[in-house]
Amino acid sequence: MILSHPSRNRPAAGPAGPAAPARRAFVVHGTRLLLGAGCAILVAHPATAAARLDFDELYAKVTVLGLTFSDKVKSLDGQIVTMRGFMAPPLKAEANFFVLTEIPMSICPFCSSDSDWPDNIVVIYLDRAQTFAQANAPIDATGRLEVGSWTDPATGFVSLLRLVGASFSKV
């Protein structure tokens, strides 16, 4: 999988397969790095260091008539970024995408008809299917940032911000 030639219209998603339990493969700009779980990318490869992006930096303006992406988001479009948040309960236990939220989700919009996603979610497309992580603790997700509305053809899920070819680790 070559991440330096991404398609804007198709988030990269690797072949489904079980994740290595203790060690996790990160693919950053074509370089395959094997890292111990929880080990920071920044230390291992400063030249391709992922920029940090926080939830409160996503939007410059939030109004009834729409949100406006921040300059930081716009400038990081297509770059590798790391975001810290919580993994929302996924569609199924093992999936190649999940929703990253600012605070832990007490509701499950996938399973309840009375709930809705927060405005400021980021959808994480993993480079491979992985199992769900404990929602009570934050995670760091790292991948290439995609900005703009996109509808997942498999699920119909519409997202505005995505990290594609991503991996995650517990903080």
């Binding site: 729409g66 992406f69 509305s149």
Partner: peptide, 8 residues
């Protein structure tokens, strides 16, 4: 859906 913040 093209407007950020939309849920359509």
């Amino acid at each position: 859906k093209s407007t950020p913040g939309s849920k359509r």
